[in-house]
Design a protein around this nucleic acid. Structure first.
Lengths: 221, 221
DNA sequence: GTCTATATCCCGATAGAC
DNA sequence: GTCTATCGGGATATAGAC
């Protein structure tokens, strides 16, 4: 890390990825620009093109990096337990903690929506977490349909808690993250306990009458 | 309605709101521009300034409109039932259906994050749904803390299902919306049934580091 | 591998004509 | 209420020097 101020030493690529994650967290993917990232790092706006073909390639690289760090945060938490319910509760806690403590990274995970067909690296980076999660759920259910139902419910509830946390619904105090993680873990436990109610073969609960939504206002033209 | 493609009749304001919602749904708030909205409608880029002071004022108006239509979709669904559990299941269904069938509007609800201090109209437009939801939850719980816990879990799970639906996790077929709405309603039922597990006074579930809050009595052993 | 310079384009916002 | 015209700024991307 010799001479400072200029990037003559070849880690501009990594610096660009880190800065992209920062900027996306600050103002969203849409407002992210290569030019601003270059300015913040202190290089010319043309410098990134030595490392990435275009803006989207940098975004894809940032997303892959975010998933790698996400996996690194979640997988050790799962391995601390043997019981599937405990493992899922631990994953849920780790998921929400990651959202709260690594907010920039977390926002990139779902905020940078790129075509996963064009960037298969993203799907690959996502795979380890998905796999660990599904294997826990399968240990608690009977057949693929039941597993899907429980997995969907836990995934939705966990992601939802993370969103509420980032939205400030758990307050701004230091313990907001742990509070949210705890609530999420309990929701996961509750869903597991009542998983028979989730099963598609059960009689449908009340309230299924379809509701016809209001028509959109027609643009005058 | 249409008069030869020009706006000489005064509904440009409404057209701008509708077009803003479209554009935000297509490429996110960050990429939304007044200029593109004007172009799509077919007016000069300066025309919007006769109706909105700046870009943010149009975004705020679009958000208010989205919340109004959201309320109009949810409240009738709730009123079809008397039992609080049925009401919550119906709200959950309506919430997910709205996300799936009025996707542009739904994306504006959570995508256009504006300072609600500067735009109190947004908080006001949000209030009717929040009120109906909380009153159902309170009918099922004992005290504000329990109500908060159940409300948070249901809110998180419901929003999570909507996100998964928009992300394509329920497939692209026509029945994806109903499938997601059904799964979400069942998750809500499951959470209600196991709400004793959500309560903060219950012994903490396994998964390391129980929430270290000040007012928490020790788990029985 | 990074620089300077440049071409081309889009955006927000304002001024003034009709 | 909408138009034309314009200013100032910022973005992507390329070309060529070092």
């Amino acid at each position: 890390m010799g001479r400072r101020g200029r990037y003559h030493h070849g880690d501009l690529r990594a610096a660009l990825i880190d800065t992209a994650i920062e900027l996306i967290a600050e103002r969203g993917v849409g407002s992210f620009s290569l030019a601003e990232a270059s300015r913040r790092i202190g290089v010319a706006v043309s410098a990134p093109y030595a490392h990435f073909a275009d803006r989207d390639e940098l975004l894809a690289a940032a997303t892959v990096r975010a998933f790698e760090l996400f996996s690194a945060a979640l997988l050790p938490a799962v391995r601390q337990f043997g019981d599937p319910t405990d493992r899922l509760a631990a994953m849920t806690r780790a998921y929400v903690r990651f959202a709260g403590t690594q907010r920039p990274l977390f926002e990139v995970l779902y905020g940078a929506k790129l075509d996963k067909t064009r960037y298969p690296q993203i799907a690959a980076a996502e795979q380890p977490v998905t796999g660990a999660f599904l294997s826990c759920v399968r240990a608690l259910t009977d057949g693929d349909t039941q597993a899907d139902d429980l997995a969907t419910a836990i995934e939705a509830a966990t992601h939802g808690h993370a969103m509420l946390l980032l939205d400030g619904d758990f307050g701004q105090a230091d313990d907001a993250v742990e509070l949210a993680a705890e609530r999420a873990a309990r929701a996961t436990q509750a869903l597991i306990q009542s998983r028979h109610l989730l099963a598609r073969s059960t009689a449908a609960p009340a309230g299924k009458a379809p509701y016809p939504g209001p028509a959109l206002h027609q643009p005058g033209r």
